[in-house]
Amino acid sequence: MAVPILKQSHYLIATIQSALTDADLVQLRDALADKVGKFRSRGVIVDVTALDVLDSFASRTLRDISYMIKLRGAETVIVGIQPEVAFAMVQLGIAFEDVATALDLEEGLLYLDKKQKLGQHGSQRGF
């Protein structure tokens, strides 16, 4: 099932609706990398609220998305990681360094806005 990608002013918002197969995730990665150039977007939000598992492959793909988007000149923030999922990720030993995260869509948008104001300076994550 393909993940819908919404364009909202300078940002792209991908909201994952249900559990994804590996192929779906890879497709999402490629679609975002493509669209971020096409729409000249400055930021990407991936909303994973609906995911009840983020295993090593999913985490790695999200991290790849973040890196690829960065190389394409935009910022990515992953939003909506559930408490249980975060707990499982760290126990599994998943390193999510250099990937920006925020509580939900609203916080994600705030993060990107803040980044826009700061320009390209500083690559601090979170708040």
Binding site: V90, Q91, T101, L103
Partner: peptide, 13 residues
């Protein structure tokens, strides 16, 4: 350390 990391995944410092 895991607690700190997991909190960050939820967007909290």
């Amino acid at each position: 350390v895991q607690t700190v990391e997991a909190s960050r995944l939820l967007g909290a410092t």
